[in-house]
């Protein structure tokens, strides 16, 4: 009971902000999920819906920003309360970016599905998006329960996402070399994969913000990144034997 404020409405305002963040999170999760589904099934209708949905997230982010500023001005919060509110502003910005990335994937659906692509092109992307969605769900669950001890797991998963992305990068390059007709679709898929990898990074950002809200300290320094795609090369078959 000590954590309750004398002014009950302040608690309500904090709770309102948290619920709005949760709503944004749910929306962002759904957008990413549907964008990837639309991509795999070449469903341009669903893709159009995802693109339209992004406006909601933008609107919500502005609302949260305004509300947060008003709360700070009116209540002049300190310590944990202030971290909570500043955290809400930062998390909503990250979630808004996640929505943008989802929208960007959805926009590429029509370009990828112009010609029918083999299933194997999408299998890796689906697995990558499952990882990123698990990650996003994980951090939002941590935000809901404020359990800082589960945050370490999140970082571990981010490394998995990076490793998977590197592997996918290599696979897509191979397909492009096999048949130049794959290049259009594979280039778009590369960007989609990069977007999903970025979603994982935003999830990690959110995790760091939550850690700061709960403990008041910064998370320990990040270990070196596992993304090695910038060094990936694929042997040119014509040069074999040299």
């Amino acid at each position: 009971m000590q954590t309750q404020h004398i002014m009950r409405s302040f608690d309500e305002e904090l709770k309102f902000l948290a619920n709005q963040i949760a709503g944004m999170g749910g929306h962002a999760e759904r957008m990413v999920e549907q964008a990837v589904t639309a991509l795999v099934n070449s469903d341009t209708g669903l893709a159009a819906k995802v693109v339209a949905d992004d406006a909601f997230l933008d609107e919500k982010q502005r609302e949260i920003d305004e509300k947060a500023v008003i709360v700070i001005a009116r209540r002049q919060p300190m310590a944990g309360d202030l971290r909570e509110i500043v955290g809400a502003i930062r998390i909503s910005a990250d979630l808004e970016r996640v929505g943008d990335l989802g929208k960007n994937i959805a926009k590429r659906v029509s370009a990828v599905s112009e010609t029918r692509q083999p299933v194997r092109l999408f299998r890796g992307l689906e697995a990558l998006s499952d990882l990123a969605l698990t990650q996003l769900k994980g951090v939002l669950d941590v935000y809901a329960t404020r359990s800082a001890d589960k945050i370490a797991l999140v970082r571990d998963r981010d490394n998995q996402i990076d490793a998977m992305y590197t592997s996918l990068f290599r696979e897509l390059l191979t397909y492009m070399m096999e048949d130049p007709r794959n290049i259009t679709a594979c280039t778009h898929l590369l960007f989609c994969a990069k977007n999903i990898e970025r979603i994982g990074d935003h999830a990690t950002n959110i995790a760091e913000t939550v850690f700061h809200i709960v403990t008041g300290a910064q998370m320990p320094v990040e270990r070196p990144k596992e993304d090695k795609s910038h060094r990936v090369t694929v042997d040119n078959p014509d040069n074999n034997g040299r």
């Binding site: 948290a18 619920n19 949760a22 749910g26 929306h27 999760e29 669950d141 935000y143 809901a144 329960t145």
Partner: peptide, 20 residues
């Protein structure tokens, strides 16, 4: 859905748009 801590709000636990 994993243990619910007392006092957690449903909107935080179930974030899907239709659930909200």
């Amino acid at each position: 859905f994993g243990p619910s801590l007392p006092g957690v709000s449903l909107q935080l636990k179930f974030r899907a748009p239709e659930m909200h």
